[in-house]
Design a protein around this nucleic acid. Structure first.
Lengths: 247, 247
DNA sequence: AAGTGGTCTAGACCACTAA
DNA sequence: TAGTGGTCTAGACCACTTA
């Protein structure tokens, strides 16, 4: 298993297919294979990493579920250009009034690196001295702002985002977290409230003062259950539905 | 592969692990293994269906992803019991005066056995001639109605509820479904909207006419994915929060 | 110690794609 | 026809649970 750790230090306690998966993510993130391009074949990867094809397949399975790769029988395995329906985006729960899922664009309005308030500090399990990255952004449909978001991230885990140009933030943040910061959202808890539109809402979203506004607070966590993103989203209640599947 | 088709006719064009998955779903839905009970071991299943353990594992993988089964190393593979008996308790957090969560009671106001409207008929996958049981109930906290619910059930599967005395309906319906009708809720989809209070809402829930009301539509399904309950719940937006964990 | 699921191997053959 | 991913086998050994 010496061939692993092409770009990172692997954790030998993890199963090989996990290590392999992580290494493939690194190579994709490093641009070794561009989007829409075929990666090495399963046989080649098996030889290169000195594992059986079954193990290679299991690693690729994970990345297919994550929406990073797609397979095409007879053609190859391809790096996927991010798509809305991928599982990375399963946390988006708003639908249009007609019931169709909507994919808004996004624009970051402001970024600051500051000490967070006590509530957010506690929710993210941060030390008192730690700083956080705070993003304010709007999400737009056909140029119209429909959601406003406040996002808080512990600086230590998201350092690359402290210096990324605001224009380079993408519509979807979670793929960005994974690619630039190696932070993967595994679960989230959301609490939904209905409030009345404030003057800020009126200015930013164009909803009438006092009209109902849906407010979603989300805490997102990694696979270990450690929270690392706090997010609050506001949007006019008339515009959206919120859908959830329970098991 | 003769042992397949224990309960259904398989499609031989499908891969074996798919056929196996479908057959396991049938057996679970038929009650061969109760919730919280371990199913046959991988080795036993492999012998029974005459496939290798790798194929059995792949079929079980699918059901784990679907949330039907959970694995536990060293113990076995278990039919998952969704904790729906506390569904509202879990997903609606009432703001009592002290701020503690409260458990609402319930009272059935009306029951009728009628042909459902087209929308509900379609959502429940019922035939045009079939009748449905329609329940109207309120949920109360300290004697005050806070939620009003409309519930539709296909009569064929819920016959015992057509004659049960209204006083004998319990606060939580899903345990009743399981005990009296052997219907187990395996998953549900909820869609949440915000509307304005109608005159009915004002009369029933005591919320001001025109104030924001949260409206939740739920379709609940069995292990085979067949929907068998349609429910709509209304409550004043000021009364509660809606909380959900996403995995 | 026995039994379970978890990982992994070293192949096989099939279905599909492209040259 | 050659090469790809898709399916499947018949094992092996490991980690964990229970008795």
């Amino acid at each position: 298993m010496n061939a692993l750790s092409v770009t990172t230090r692997p954790d030998d306690r993890l199963p090989r297919y996990q290590q392999l998966r992580d290494d493939l993510v690194s190579r994709i993130a490093a641009g070794e294979w561009a989007p829409e391009e075929a990666i090495a074949t399963e046989a080649e990867l098996g030889q290169f990493y000195n594992v059986s094809t079954g193990t290679v397949r299991k690693a690729i399975d994970l990345l297919v579920v994550d929406g990073v790769l797609t397979r095409s029988q007879g053609k190859g395995t391809f790096v996927r250009r991010p798509r809305f329906d991928s599982s990375l985006f399963r946390f988006f729960r708003f639908k249009s009034r007609t019931g169709e899922p909507v994919r808004p664009t996004a624009r970051v309005l402001k970024r600051e690196v500051v000490k967070p308030g006590e509530e957010i500090r506690a929710k993210l399990g941060m030390k008192a001295s730690e700083k956080a990255i705070h993003l304010s952004r709007v999400r737009l449909i056909e140029g119209q702002a429909v959601l406003s978001e406040e996002i808080w991230l512990p600086r230590a885990r998201f350092e690359p985002l402290a210096s990324l140009a605001l224009e380079d933030f993408e519509d979807l943040l979670y793929p960005l977290y994974e690619r630039l910061c190696r932070q993967i959202v595994a679960s989230a808890t959301e609490i939904l409230n209905v409030e009345q539109a404030t003057a800020d809402d009126e200015a930013l979203l164009g909803v009438p003062l006092g009209s109902p506004v849906i407010l979603v607070h989300r805490v997102a966590s990694d696979f270990a259950g450690t929270p690392f993103e706090w997010r609050s989203t506001r949007g006019g209640a008339a515009t959206f539905q919120y859908e959830v599947e329970i098991r």
